[in-house]
Simulated scan of single mutants.
Amino acid sequence: MSDQTYKVLVLCTGNSARSIMSEALINVLGAGRFLAYSAGSQPSGRVNPFAVEQAQSIGYDTANVRSKSWDEFSQPDSPKMDIVITVCDSAAGESCPLWRGSPIKVHWGFEDPSHVDGSDEDKRAAFTKTFAQIRGKITLLVNLPIDTLSHTELESALQVIGDLPV
């Protein structure tokens, strides 16, 4: 087994909900084998409090969580990513910056829970549902025998995970 830590960048448009929750799940469930970051093509500048609540529910430290631009990860001194995952359809269709190295790029689409109207209970329920859907795919990711897969095999496995129904 390798001691490599796999770096994952999770992208969405606003970097306020789905990408934040994905970052938290990868960092917690990845147990040191994975290091996740999140960013947005058009960051909202704020993290949705219901996303923060979900991240905290699994023990993720949200003290430094913020909505940030994906440009932070395309700089010469940025961490070299192994995997880039888009989690919203609009970010998947945008022209991404060039990432350092040759990361595998996949799309795992999830509905945006921040678009749910209603009471706080309705919104919380939408975030809980989306968080569970993301958790299902992240669990599959962190349990892949990643150290034994070629680049092509890993790309295929990640695509299969993305194609699974949520």
Rank of each mutant, 00 (worst) to 15 (best):
L29W: 03
S150H: 10
A31M: 08
V166M: 12
G59M: 05
I83C: 09
H115M: 15
Q133S: 07
M21T: 01
R100N: 15
D82M: 05
L9S: 07
G93H: 10
V10T: 04
V84D: 06
G45S: 00
A157R: 09
A36S: 01
F50Q: 05
L140K: 15
T13V: 10
V52R: 10
N143W: 08
K137A: 09
I83N: 09
K80F: 05
E121G: 07
V47E: 03
K68C: 08
S78H: 12
L29K: 01
A125S: 13
S74M: 11
R46K: 14
A92E: 12
T13C: 02
G59C: 06
S16W: 03
S67V: 00
G109Y: 07
F110K: 05
L35P: 00
F131G: 04
N143R: 10
Q54E: 14
Q4M: 08
G30E: 00
A24G: 02
V87N: 00
E94R: 14
I83M: 11
D61Y: 03
I58Y: 02
S74Q: 13
A55E: 01
P103V: 03
I134D: 02
G118E: 03
L29H: 04
Q75M: 06
I146W: 11
K137T: 08
W99I: 08
Q54D: 04
D117K: 11
W70E: 02
R18H: 04
I146H: 12
T86E: 06
S22H: 01
T13R: 01
K68A: 07
W99P: 05
G32F: 04
E121M: 10
S41H: 10
G14S: 13
N27A: 01
G162R: 02
M21Y: 00
T139C: 05
K105T: 09
D112K: 01
I83Y: 10
T62W: 05
S114E: 09
D71G: 08
V84R: 07
C96T: 15
A125Q: 12
L141T: 02
H107Y: 05
R124F: 09
A51K: 02
A31C: 08
T148M: 10
M21R: 01
I85D: 10
F131A: 01
E53R: 13
N48Q: 06
G93D: 13
N48C: 09
Q42H: 13
Q4P: 00
S2A: 11
P76G: 03
V87D: 06
D147F: 00
Q133L: 07
Q133T: 03
P113E: 12
V47F: 01
S44F: 14
T13A: 06
N15C: 06
Q133M: 09
S41A: 11
N27P: 03
D77H: 14
S114N: 08
I104D: 13
S19D: 08
V65I: 12
G118Q: 02
I83A: 11
P113G: 11
V28F: 00
T5V: 15
V84T: 06
R66L: 05
L149I: 12
R46P: 03
A17F: 08
P79S: 09
D71Y: 13
I104C: 10
V52A: 07
V87I: 08
K129I: 04
D71S: 15
E153T: 07
T139I: 06
Q54W: 02
A91V: 01
T139D: 14
T139M: 10
T128G: 03
A31H: 13
A31Q: 14
S95W: 11
D77I: 04
Q133H: 11
S67M: 07
V106C: 04
